[in-house]
């Protein structure tokens, strides 16, 4: 694999649950010109820590450096790149589609194939909730583009290591 190849990375961090921690972390990425594609901050089973799941793209060598610099921050308990590891990765999206009565059945059929939940329905619109891997959400998105997508919100990827391994 090319060391300088640009690709997407799944990074997880366990951090102190304090104000300002997010800025310290994003500064490390920004300083090296690394773009954050998605970022999820959530509580953990222990209220003094937060979990961050970050998807970012850029070259691997720079990312290795960034991970080490993240681990250096006093508020970061640990940071690791899970790219290429066997982990569970999930994302949730809400997609609002323009859906007059005549194409409703068609859209619902697509939605069924992707195991979506219909969370809102009006005469002209349909809101779908979908969970799964990034590929699945991307595929659904492509399928729905032939109808008019009015709005879309994606949570960004959350990651958890399988088995006894820690995330």
């Amino acid at each position: 694999m090319d060391e300088n190849s640009v690709d997407s990375h799944s990074i997880s961090l366990l951090v102190n649950n304090k104000p300002g921690v997010l800025i310290r972390i994003s500064l490390v990425f920004a300083r090296r010109g690394y773009n954050i594609d998605s970022l999820v901050v959530s509580p953990t089973q222990n209220e003094i820590y937060s979990r961050m799941s970050i998807t970012a793209s850029g070259d691997r060598q720079t990312l290795e450096q960034i991970i080490k610099q993240l681990n250096k921050l006093v508020d970061v308990i640990h940071a690791c790149d899970h790219t290429g590891e066997v982990v569970v990765e999930k994302e949730l999206a809400l997609i609002k589609v323009k859906c007059p009565v005549e194409c409703r059945t068609e859209v619902l059929q697509v939605s069924e194939h992707f195991k979506c939940q219909t969370v809102d329905i009006t005469e002209d619109t349909l809101m779908l909730q979908v969970t799964g891997g990034t590929d699945k959400l991307d595929a659904l998105h492509t399928m729905l583009t032939r109808y008019t997508i009015l709005e879309m919100v994606r949570t960004g990827k959350i990651i958890m290591a399988r088995g006894v391994a820690t995330t």
């Binding site: 104000p19 300002g20 800025i23 310290r24 500064l27 300083r31 006093v74 508020d75």
Partner: peptide, 14 residues
């Protein structure tokens, strides 16, 4: 000040 300091300190407290 703690915000300004982030890139140039080992750590900071407010």
């Amino acid at each position: 000040v703690s915000g300004i300091s982030f890139p140039v300190v080992k750590h900071s407290y407010l």
